[in-house]
């Protein structure tokens, strides 16, 4: 049952990523892979919030797994982030590749920490 719900929410997360990605791409130009970065940062903020809610007891463990592993996991993506960084390096845009690669890591970890803190403060 959990597997089925993780799968359904994962599909919903992936579809959300596809729509958000297209929406942001239509409003930004060149430079950094802003769409994927924004998706991974917001997804990390959400998983942090869910983890915080689980810790305070506001969220059941099963609901946490379905929302975090399902939706957040399907919504965020490591494979596309890696590919976009490689493509920047292939173009010779090494600085932007470094900013995309390391910047995403640092910002997603900070977003996850902010999510945990937010849930702890609010719930």
């Amino acid at each position: 049952m959990i597997l089925l719900l993780v799968s359904v929410l994962g599909g919903l997360g992936a579809a959300t990523r596809f729509v958000v990605d297209g929406w942001i791409r239509g409003r930004t130009s060149g430079g950094l892979p802003v769409a994927t970065m924004a998706i991974n940062i917001t997804g990390s903020l959400l998983i942090g919030f869910l983890a915080g809610a689980l810790a305070t007891g506001a969220l059941e463990p099963n609901a946490y797994v379905v929302a975090a592993t399902g939706f957040c996991g399907g919504y965020t993506t490591f494979s596309t982030a890696s590919m976009e960084t490689v493509r920047l390096a292939q173009e010779g845009a090494y600085r932007r590749a470094l900013v995309a690669g390391l910047g995403t890591l640092v910002l997603t970890v900070l977003a996850a920490a902010a999510g945990v803190g937010l849930a702890t403060a609010l719930l």
Binding site: S44, I47, A112
Partner: peptide, 13 residues
Amino acid sequence: GGFTTYSALALEV
């Protein structure tokens, strides 16, 4: 995209 995840990586770190 669904198989890989950045949110789990960020939360684990």
